[in-house]
C-alpha cells in the first residue's frame, strides 16, 4: 500500500482529474493535460470548452 502513497500525493499535485476527466481531456490517451505535466509549455485539449 505504501508504494501508492507518493503517487497519490502526486495525483493531487498534478491535477490528474484533468487526465481522468470524463470528456476527451482525460479519457484520451494522448490527453494534453498529461503532457502539460511533462513540462511542455503548450498542450492541446480536445475537450469541452465551456467555462
Amino acid at each position: 500500500m505504501k508504494e501508492y502513497i507518493a503517487p497519490l500525493l502526486e495525483c493531487i499535485q498534478y491535477k490528474v482529474e484533468e487526465r481522468l476527466a470524463t470528456t476527451c481531456t482525460g479519457s484520451c490517451p494522448h490527453t494534453g493535460e498529461f503532457i502539460d505535466s511533462e513540462g511542455n509549455p503548450v498542450y492541446l485539449i480536445s475537450q469541452s470548452y465551456s467555462g
Binding site: 502539460d36 509549455p41 503548450v42 498542450y43 492541446l44 485539449i45 480536445s46
Partner: peptide
Amino acid sequence: TKLAEKFGVGLGIVNY
C-alpha cells in the same frame, strides 16, 4: 503563451 507564463502555468489549447 506569455500570459500563461506570467501566471506560472502552461497554456492549454482547446483545438476542437
